[in-house]
Simulated scan of single mutants.
Amino acid sequence: MATKTTENNTTSSSAEKKMQVDNANVNEKEMKDAPLHKFFVDALKDIYYAEHKLVDALQTMHDAATTEELKDAFEDHQLQTKKHISRLDKVFKLIDETPEQKKCEAMDGLIKEGEEIIKSTEEGTMTRDAALIIAAQKVEHYEIASYGGLAQLAITMGHDKAADLLEKILQEEEDTDYNLTEIAETSINFDAEQED
Rank of each mutant, 00 (worst) to 15 (best):
Q20H: 12
V21K: 11
N23M: 14
A24Q: 03
V26Q: 11
N27I: 09
E30C: 13
E30T: 15
A34H: 15
P35D: 02
H37A: 12
K38N: 03
K38S: 02
F39S: 07
F39Q: 10
F40H: 08
F40P: 09
V41S: 00
A43H: 11
L44R: 10
K45P: 03
K45L: 10
K45W: 12
D46P: 00
I47M: 10
I47V: 11
Y48M: 07
Y49G: 06
Y49K: 09
Y49T: 07
Y49I: 06
Y49W: 13
Y49Q: 08
A50C: 11
A50M: 10
H52D: 06
H52R: 08
K53S: 07
L54C: 08
L54P: 09
V55F: 05
V55P: 07
A57Y: 01
L58C: 01
L58P: 01
L58E: 00
T60N: 01
M61I: 04
D63M: 03
D63P: 07
A64G: 09
A65K: 05
A65T: 01
T66F: 02
T66D: 00
T67M: 01
T67R: 02
T67P: 09
T67C: 04
E68Y: 13
L70R: 00
K71V: 04
K71M: 10
K71A: 08
F74S: 01
E75V: 01
D76H: 11
D76M: 07
D76Q: 10
H77N: 01
H77W: 00
Q78R: 06
Q78V: 01
Q78C: 02
L79Q: 14
Q80M: 00
Q80D: 00
K82I: 07
K82V: 05
K83D: 15
K83G: 15
K83L: 14
K83F: 15
H84F: 04
I85C: 11
I85Q: 10
S86V: 11
S86Y: 12
R87M: 03
R87Q: 03
R87W: 00
L88D: 00
D89F: 03
I95G: 04
I95D: 01
I95Y: 02
I95S: 01
T98H: 03
E100V: 08
K102Q: 12
K102F: 06
K102R: 12
C104I: 04
A106Q: 05
A106L: 03
A106D: 02
D108Y: 03
L110S: 02
L110D: 02
L110E: 03
E116S: 05
E116N: 05
E116I: 02
K119C: 13
K119F: 12
K119I: 08
K119S: 14
K119V: 12
S120T: 11
T121D: 05
T121R: 03
E122L: 15
E123R: 15
G124L: 08
G124W: 12
G124M: 12
G124V: 09
T125R: 13
T125H: 13
M126D: 15
M126Y: 15
T127Y: 11
D129K: 04
A130I: 12
A130C: 14
A131K: 07
L132F: 13
L132Y: 09
I133E: 00
A135L: 13
A135Y: 06
A136W: 06
Q137W: 15
E140F: 09
E140V: 06
E140W: 10
E140H: 13
